[in-house]
């Protein structure tokens, strides 16, 4: 783990093909920060969900708009910020799915965000549609 704060950035086109590259970038840094496999898997999945949301919803699957991923590694804290400049959303309108209802209704939204919140210690959304949307994901080592 770095002694002081270390920051890493990845700017990548918003294509699903790039999810694997993003996961590898994140899992390498999570290991570097001192996480064990179990937590590495959780962080990797949370970031995949955040980036998939950007590709599908913020940019409406329009290729080659940038997703900016920043990772900050501090002594006991691992922070990933996923930023886009696409269409935002109102986080308060995303309902946490009830799983029985989920099965009954099929394709209720919100599963990705529900997973992100279950996987990380802190999740914070800053939404300015068309200007800058950012989700900040924190996991403590």
């Amino acid at each position: 783990m770095p002694k002081n704060k270390a920051t890493y950035h990845l700017k990548i086109p918003s294509q699903t093909d790039n999810l694997e590259v993003i996961r590898e970038f994140i899992s390498n840094l999570a290991r570097k920060a001192g996480f064990q496999n179990d937590d590495v898997d959780k962080i990797e999945l949370a970031v995949d969900e955040a980036c998939s949301n950007v590709i599908k919803h913020a940019y409406k699957k329009t290729d080659k708009k940038p997703i900016i991923i920043s990772v900050e590694i501090e002594k006991n804290k691992f922070t990933v910020s996923v930023t886009d400049h696409g269409k935002g959303f109102d986080i308060n309108k995303i309902k946490t799915p009830d799983m029985k209802e989920y099965l009954a209704q099929m394709r209720v939204g919100g599963l990705g965000i529900y997973l992100i919140k279950s996987l990380m210690d802190e999740v914070d959304f800053t939404i300015e549609p068309g200007v800058k949307n950012q989700v900040k994901l924190v996991k403590y080592v």
Partner: peptide, 16 residues
């Protein structure tokens, strides 16, 4: 080795 919610949604839709 890995599945995200995109895969889970497909399985959910199929089971339904």
């Amino acid at each position: 080795e890995y599945i995200s919610s995109a895969g889970l949604r497909v399985l959910l839709s199929v089971t339904q």
